[in-house]
Design a protein around this nucleic acid. Structure first.
Lengths: 344, 344
DNA sequence: GTGAAAGCGCTAACAT
DNA sequence: ATGTTAGCGCTTTCAC
């Protein structure tokens, strides 16, 4: 089987008896080429089934028009939505995206960064893994002058542009709502508090307690779990077995809230009459369980779009020295549903 | 600001007073290079912060080690899981993936294919858009000798490798289960039946009716909707308003089933006592609503993995002429939950 | 086991 | 408005 070589600009040039540079310019719609020549070239290109070769262009221009994305899990709705936002903005601006999963492993994350660097991406958008004990791999990208921005999650020590939500404030707001529902003791299921987002959400809870003059010693219990349905289910059941008392549960994501609600309902507690429940992130599922769960809507799509826009601006900015790293905070907002509303 | 040029194999060669081809061989672990030289090169590369340039290699070797993926919506759990499977296999074999969304638009799909072709991907895995009236854009990839395989959804006219599930058989099995639950009339909410998967699922329903000797005229109603929670909710309410009678609902995905269940419950019907409900795809949410919904588990991750494996095999196969297109059918299976189980 | 040299397909100075 | 030319960073054939 003969491998038929693909058509290049040289082939087009030869066929038209002109120079390949003119073909290149014509295809790139360069104003210095006459309309007539442009038409000639485009027609011939179509006729010969010419297919532009980005590889060659990228090598020559030292620019790949590609943005790398690293997320913990592409299957989580929040991230796939954010990616969707990034992709939309990127394509609009003529960029491709390469998506990598870190699976919340620092090792994989470092590998991903390496891959992206050898693919010569023009920038990297990352929501870092939970267990990130060193920042060398991220520093590596910066050392090579490849901009790397955070979205949603971030690492404190690394000073670069961040696109995040006002988790702390909204978490406080949600907690204030819970405290107003005639409760005695709030149980919180949190994720790893070394992760920025969970750290901030917990801080928001303490803010609310302080503002309300509530004693965190006696009226707050907090446990760190893997934030999924099963772990929350187990945690709640364990508390109930140990006769730990609480009449409100705040899960730091919706899955934890749903698992908690399920456990409570199975043990005969009515939601919200006996225990009120709240989650975080406004997963599509949160409004479909019964009762629907109070949560926080995070603008995932907007986070993605904004992060992409900022990255593309940065890449295409001529004078990079003017650019300082900045933190963009998007507003998330409370969605109060049945699970936390008591008829006092 | 001076743009510092990146380190190349020539820089390493110069530093070691050897030839760049030797450096290249050493870095690629070529057996014809002495262990001593290899060590020298690797150490120097690390010292100089050398970063391999895939772009250059790709251009030279005419191979990008990249697989393109096109799905309708990355935010759908089934697809993000399949992508996750593809990614895992691809990375294992040293390939990157570029992910594109068609948003179920043929136009975007054609654009995506173009992008992937100019990026010189080594192969394309696609789950085609709903509205695909022409196959030119897919043919284009094949004409350029870029293998394009289907996963999950496929287009009948295009003869290429497919990795799909046995939707028709499982849909029949599920329907048989429903018919056995002492029901009189089944209402089906389907998606666009010009899409292979929905077409097959509907065929499965007819298979079951035929096998059971049920009359489809009198005991089956079928409506095509946009398969989401809201459209299903609206469709069910419309039926109820018009006094259409039915005591079983089969939604062709879980979202439709959930929307149906919600509408029915709000109108006072008990599930499964008054009406039984079933869905398709086993979205995580399907077991969390109440009652949990009977559905079909599709091995999304495995579909992705298998599609990726087949593609990579194909790409790396020396003698392509030996390879015929084939259809791999993965087994999906029934998950019977409370929503369809009647205490007769 | 290592070197020399050509070239993948494109772009962009510079020249005319 | 178009042509000439060099080269992006790597791989690979052919020498030795």
């Amino acid at each position: 089987m003969e491998l038929k070589k693909s058509v290049t600009i040289h082939d087009i040039a030869k066929a038209l008896n002109i120079n390949s540079s003119t073909v290149s310019r014509a295809l790139n719609d360069n104003p210095r080429v006459s309309a007539k020549t442009k038409k000639l070239v485009h027609d011939k290109a179509k006729e010969m089934h010419y297919q532009y070769n980005s590889l060659a262009s990228n090598l020559r221009t030292q620019k790949s028009n590609t943005i790398g994305i690293i997320v913990p899990h592409i299957t989580k709705h929040f991230f796939s939505t954010a990616i969707s936002g990034i992709e939309e903005e990127a394509h609009k601006a003529g960029y491709n995206v390469i998506i990598c999963q870190s699976k919340d492993s620092e090792q994989l994350e470092a590998k991903n960064i390496n891959t992206l660097l050898s693919s010569r991406v023009d920038g990297i958008l990352i929501s870092p893994a939970i267990k990130t004990t060193t920042v060398q791999h991220i520093q590596k990208a910066m050392d090579r002058n490849v901009p790397i921005f955070f979205f949603d999650r971030y690492i404190d020590e690394i000073n670069t542009t961040r696109v995040i939500t006002n988790d702390r404030a909204t978490s406080k707001e949600l907690t204030l709502h819970l405290l107003s529902q005639n409760i005695n003791k709030l149980a919180v299921l949190t994720g790893d508090t070394s992760v920025s987002i969970y750290e901030n959400r917990v801080k928001g809870i303490y803010d609310a307690f302080q503002q309300s003059g509530w004693n965190t010693e006696s009226r707050l219990i907090l446990q760190q779990i893997k934030l999924d349905v099963d772990d929350a289910y187990t945690a709640i059941n364990k508390w109930l077995d140990e006769n730990v008392e609480f009449d409100a549960v705040f899960g730091m994501n919706d899955m934890a809230a749903i698992g908690s609600q399920k456990a409570l309902q199975e043990r005969g507690f009515r939601i919200p009459e006996d225990v009120i429940v709240a989650g975080f992130s406004n997963e599509p599922i949160s409004k479909l369980v019964s009762p629907p769960i109070t949560t926080v809507h995070q603008p995932a799509m907007e986070i993605g779009k904004l992060a992409a826009k900022k990255m593309i601006n940065h890449i295409e900015e001529k004078d990079k020295s003017l650019l300082a790293s900045e933190t963009a905070v998007l507003e998330s907002h409370l969605i109060i549903r049945t699970s936390s509303q008591r008829n006092k």
